[in-house]
């Protein structure tokens, strides 16, 4: 338990550094550090599937972010209505902390596997699906609807970005024929 708390502190410190960094590249590096902390937390909690996925996606996102920010240096805007902004930030922080506390106090204690459906998956997963990796069995068999929704979200996001970011528009049929 103590190592998880240490890792959580590490992640929070990295996130604070990422917010306070003066240039954009160091902020990106600090975000990568916090992502690696999350990856090691998954490993300590004995979830290697999540750890592999987190590590790989983190590397990919870091490369994309570094590629996007390495030639630019966006200035920070410090002027303006700082009093109003600080007040709104504090109000929202308190509201989110309160709602989060209310939500988290309802779920079972940490490391306390009392969930009924999940215990059925663990007991009968191997006989029903014949997959040695239980995470895969739950992802693609018991909860395949969730995975289908996830794939749909990724597909729709890529299609939407592709439609917005495309530089050349598609020509009409008549124009193509006249050329």
């Amino acid at each position: 338990m103590i190592e998880i708390n240490l890792l959580l502190g590490f992640i929070i410190i990295a996130a604070i550094i990422a917010v306070n960094a003066k240039d954009l590249l160091s902020a990106v590096v600090a975000v990568g550090v916090s992502g690696l902390g999350i990856c090691i937390t998954f490993l300590t909690l004995k979830a290697p599937d999540l750890a592999i996925t987190q590590l790989v996606v983190e590397i990919l996102c870091l490369m994309i972010l570094v590629n996007a920010t390495i030639k630019k240096d966006l200035p920070f805007s410090v002027s303006g209505r700082w009093f109003l902004n600080t007040l709104i930030t504090i109000i929202f922080l308190i509201a989110f902390l309160y709602i989060g506390y209310q939500a988290i106090s309802g779920i079972p204690r940490f490391g306390h596997p009392t969930m009924r459906v999940a215990s059925i998956y663990i007991r009968e997963g191997l006989e029903k699906v014949h997959a040695a990796n239980l995470v895969s069995a739950i992802n693609l068999n018991f909860r395949a609807y969730d995975t289908l929704g996830e794939a749909t979200i990724l597909f729709a996001a890529a299609i939407g970005v592709m439609a917005v970011m495309r530089s050349k528009g598609r020509k009409k049929k008549e124009e193509r024929e006249t050329e």
Binding site: I64, N67, A137, L140, A158, M165
Partner: peptide
């Protein structure tokens, strides 16, 4: 073994490969 799970993994992998490559193209654009 495990019936359809390997094929589903391959299908998801195709989706993810294209997403990762699409991220690169996004950065280039």
């Amino acid at each position: 073994s495990a019936g359809t799970i390997p094929i589903s993994n391959v299908a998801l992998a195709l989706l993810e490969v294209s997403l990762g490559l699409f991220g690169i193209f996004l950065v280039l654009v």
